[in-house]
């Protein structure tokens, strides 16, 4: 499923005009994006939490050529699945 399908599903489920549903979805992911850019945590009960992890730079190697390369330090969001979602997805 992609964002426009999610917007359509939300509009249908909540009886909202498509335009409003689009604003809702954009606001939700927009706020989440802004929080991560600020380096802030996100905690949505049932869905999961995000935090920005910092990774030190290191000397790596291109596995194909063996060439040594500098890997720059970076920040990456890390998503931890919430309890409810985790249990619902894992149906084994």
């Amino acid at each position: 499923m992609n964002k426009s399908q999610l917007i359509e599903a939300l509009a249908k489920e909540e009886n909202l005009p498509l335009k409003k549903a689009e604003e809702v979805v954009n606001t939700v992911f927009g706020e989440m994006e802004k929080a991560l850019i600020r380096g802030e945590r996100i905690e949505i009960r049932g869905l999961g939490s995000f935090k920005v992890k910092y990774y030190e730079g290191y000397k790596g190697r291109n596995p194909k050529t063996g060439e040594i390369i500098d890997v720059a330090p970076k920040k990456l969001p890390f998503f931890k699945v919430g309890k409810e979602l985790k249990e619902r997805v894992d149906l084994y």
Partner: peptide
């Protein structure tokens, strides 16, 4: 709408389908 949106996201993943939010 926030509750419904979260439930739609969970339902999608529960069904085994990936969810792609472009730009996010």
């Amino acid at each position: 709408v926030v509750e419904t949106l979260l439930e739609l996201i969970k339902k999608t993943l529960e069904s085994g389908e990936d969810l792609l939010i472009s730009g996010f």
